[in-house]
């Protein structure tokens, strides 16, 4: 199980830097590792969410060439927070999961901005929100919805095959 999580994190980060850029719409690309982190956190709880977010963020920091630890920290927080929700909210329904993913993307972006501000990051929050965080949050929402539907379809098919 841990191996599958590791492979998902590694595969998601690899895809983010290789395949995902070609899904760019108007210069906006989805954040696949964050989507993976959110779904893993919702299903496995805050510890798994935190570790997966940290690992995925660290890998993205490494591949992105920025400061090591920024995305690791923001994603670990995001994974942890997302993992706490199942006990407090009814998160099994896609209509909760998708807006949750959009909000998580925005929150993670704000945390990352806050951390970078401590390190004298020059861009303004308004521009970042308008051109990066919100468009990516919407894109993540759409891609997350597609992922949820795909997972549910796979589970339905698996159920059909195993009823005998």
């Amino acid at each position: 199980m841990r191996l599958s999580l590791l492979l998902m994190v590694f595969g998601g980060s690899l895809a983010q830097s290789s395949v995902v850029p070609s899904w760019s719409v108007g210069g906006v690309t989805p954040d696949l590792p964050l989507i993976l982190t959110a779904f893993i956190a919702l299903r496995r709880g805050p510890e798994a969410g935190c570790l997966v977010g940290f690992a995925a963020g660290l890998l993205q920091d490494v591949t992105g060439g920025g400061l090591l630890g920024v995305q690791a920290l923001s994603r670990a927080l995001a994974g942890f927070a997302m993992g706490l929700l199942p006990g407090r909210l009814w998160v099994g329904h896609p209509l909760v999961q998708i807006p949750g993913l959009v909000l998580l993307t925005v929150a993670e972006g704000l945390v990352r901005f806050g951390l970078l501000q401590l390190l004298h990051f020059p861009a303004s929050i308004g521009e970042l929100l308008a051109h990066v965080i919100l468009p990516q949050a919407l894109y993540n929402g759409f891609l997350g919805a597609a992922c949820v539907l795909a997972v549910e379809l796979a589970q339905t098919l698996r159920g059909r095959h195993t009823w005998t």
């Binding site: 935190c50 570790l51 400061l67 630890g69 920290l73 390190l119």
Partner: peptide, 21 residues
Amino acid sequence: RRYALLLAVLLTSLFLLTVQT
């Protein structure tokens, strides 16, 4: 254990950032 893990991750990240900056 849950919050200890979070704290460890946060401290590791902050350590990395500190080392670099």
